[in-house]
Amino acid sequence: MAGFDIDRVAHLARLDLTAEERELFGSQLETIVAYVERISQLDVEGLPATLHGHSVNNIFRADVPVEGLPTEVATANAPERIEDEIRMPRVVE
């Protein structure tokens, strides 16, 4: 099994972990990864992937405008707002 780098994965997942969590999840996830690893025993060469519960794909609808949620309803749950905009920390230098 390839090494489970808890810090790399936590950064990718955008999760701050405490020292205790780092240790606990690190060891638990190593065990879990070792367990799910058993799918490598199977020969899957040439098999198609099953992506979801049925094989229907490419569902289209008519390209016409429809009523969406009004802006004030859509933004009502935002933690910080300025009028009808959502406020965030600066993301450009």
Binding site: F4, L15, V36, I39, L47, A49
Partner: peptide, 23 residues
């Protein structure tokens, strides 16, 4: 979330996520 991020991460995607979809 950590496990899911791992199985989708670069270098591991084929061995875990892709293979699981075939299984």
């Amino acid at each position: 979330v950590l496990l899911g991020t791992f199985v989708l991460s670069s270098g591991y995607y084929d061995a875990y996520y892709n293979r699981a979809q075939k299984v």
